[in-house]
Design a protein around this nucleic acid. Structure first.
Lengths: 238, 238
DNA sequence: TGATTTAACTTGTATTTACAAGTAATATAT
DNA sequence: ATATATTACTTGTAAATACAAGTTAAATCA
């Protein structure tokens, strides 16, 4: 479905080590093999290995200490669900069940949209959808997503039930999320939000407004996410 | 006060470019000089220049596009105040005025502390302080800070009025913040919080619980921050 | 003119080499 | 036995080099 790309070596090692950490091969506090050992083990040179390790450190999986080594720092993502920095960690996503509130529809952009739009985006209209995501049958996220209707044929006809929006975009349209900005606020739940998240009205919810960048320079994915943080928190690293 | 250290070249270039961006020498959307040009301009090799640029990209100051170049992305930190990822950006700190609620005092750690503590930390007791930070005379942050009382002679006697806690720690005790974890929640304001942040009781506030790491492996700085996000948001990048 | 190819850029990935600086355990001297 | 110095690790910084891959604009061809 997607053209097979050659994965860079440093990325390969990154994925291997990340998997080992989340699988528990290495656990909290463990010392990773030294950079030179990793070079030998995986047949790479040190700069390449270092690129893997610095990405891992950036995403919060390890801490590097000069003279000591790389120490595993597996913060409890499974509970924290959503990482604020670093890759949007599909880790926590595994346990999330998604239910579609409004299937993808084509519509005009809202007036006073949360982020400024380019002319191209404005005149293209947007694909709109609403979802609620559950953890252990408790609603945690109420997501509203927007994406400009540019080069997305038949997207409103796709099956979103089991696949994430990210996967649909990647598999059918070769659109990959590369990063983004977000704003975070605490707001009182509106009646709509409280209904979807099973909360009382006016109860505090976390509101994230995100602009995600893709490998296609003109195409952004916008989302407005309301989180029930009564039981779970959002994690971040810096 | 602090022993002068040699600053790495890549760090030097990072600071120069960061300053240029926040000073407006380069503005949003501008193309930075190419890597090779920067090499010539500052007499470094490309790997060194690239290290500067990737740090800038990580902190959200630029976006890199293969084949195009590095594009300035100066998100409005001045309004956003506090960055969630990246260096804790003293940028926004400049405009913040601090008022001390409780001067640093030595006390026992609270029971049920927000993060697990080491034995050494527990038996050392903690330095405790409370502050409120204002932007344009509007209270934005209510900070509660904890730090283990290890190798911090006379800290309770220091003048905190104009200096940030970070600066005190760095200048007098050679303690540098290297990174950290945080949890984010939306909670209703308690009466205490609402008083300090000039909000109504039960109004939503953002609650950040942070564990900051220092260059001293055993010493962490903990803080519990309550944010008034009515007018301003917290920014993040990922 | 208009479409296509080419060339000249840009950043991305990777190797090799060298030395600096921090850490920890071992060996040595007192 | 206790400091002190050495040594053998670790990661950090930096250079020089090469080619891959994406972008853009100029040159070429129809």
């Amino acid at each position: 479905m997607v053209p097979p790309k050659t994965i860079p070596q440093y990325r390969r090692l990154y994925e291997i080590l990340r998997k080992h950490i989340s699988d528990g091969v290495y656990t909290e506090g463990d010392l990773l093999p030294s950079e030179n050992e990793l070079c030998q083990l995986y047949g790479m040179t040190r700069p390449t290995v270092r690129q893997s390790l610095s990405t891992l450190a950036n995403d919060g999986y390890i801490r590097k200490h000069q003279g000591k080594g790389s120490i595993v720092h597996n913060l409890p993502r499974e509970i924290g669900i959503l990482s604020v920095s670093g890759t949007t960690s599909a880790v926590g996503d595994r346990k999330l069940k998604t239910s579609i509130i409004i299937k993808p529809v084509l519509m005009k952009w809202p007036d006073d949209f949360m982020f400024p739009l380019t002319e191209l985006e404005k005149e293209s209209g947007c694909i709109y959808m609403e979802r609620v995501r559950f953890l252990d049958d408790v609603p945690i996220f109420y997501d509203i997503s927007f994406i400009a209707n540019i080069n997305l044929p038949r997207i409103t006809a796709r099956q979103f039930e089991n696949k994430s929006l990210f996967r649909i975009l990647r598999d059918y349209y070769h659109i990959e999320i590369k990063g983004g900005d977000q704003r975070i606020k605490a707001i009182p739940a509106t009646s709509k939000i409280s209904r979807f998240l099973h909360l009382k009205k006016e109860q505090p919810v976390l509101h994230l407004e995100r602009k995600l960048e893709t490998n296609n320079p003109g195409i952004f994915l916008y989302s407005s996410i309301f989180c029930n943080t009564e039981k779970y928190s959002i994690f971040g690293r810096f």
